[in-house]
Amino acid sequence: MSDSTSGKTHVHHHHEGPAAFVAAVEHASEERGLRLTPLRKEVLELIAAAGKPVKAYDLLDQLRERHGNAAPPTVYRALDFLLENGFIHKLESINAFVSCHHPAEAHQVPFLICDICSSAQEVCDERVAELIEAQAKAFGFRPQAQTLEVHGVCKQCRKA
Rank of each mutant, 00 (worst) to 15 (best):
A19Y: 05
A20T: 14
A20Y: 05
F21W: 15
F21E: 03
V22Y: 12
A23Q: 10
A23Y: 12
A23P: 02
A23F: 14
A24T: 12
A24M: 03
V25N: 08
V25P: 10
E26D: 15
H27V: 09
H27Y: 07
H27C: 09
H27S: 15
H27D: 10
H27Q: 15
H27K: 15
H27A: 11
H27P: 04
A28Y: 04
A28N: 09
A28T: 05
S29V: 07
S29E: 01
S29A: 13
S29I: 08
E30G: 01
E30C: 06
E30H: 00
E30Y: 01
E30A: 01
E30V: 07
E31Y: 00
E31I: 01
E31H: 03
E31D: 01
R32C: 04
R32T: 13
G33Q: 05
G33A: 06
G33H: 05
G33S: 06
L34C: 04
L34S: 02
R35G: 01
L36P: 13
L36C: 12
L36S: 11
L36G: 10
T37V: 10
T37P: 02
T37C: 00
T37F: 03
T37R: 09
T37A: 08
T37S: 08
P38I: 03
P38G: 04
P38Y: 00
P38E: 05
L39T: 13
L39K: 12
L39Q: 13
R40E: 14
K41Q: 06
E42C: 00
E42Y: 04
E42T: 00
E42W: 03
V43R: 00
V43N: 12
L44C: 14
L44N: 07
E45V: 13
E45K: 14
L46A: 03
L46E: 12
L46M: 10
I47S: 03
I47K: 02
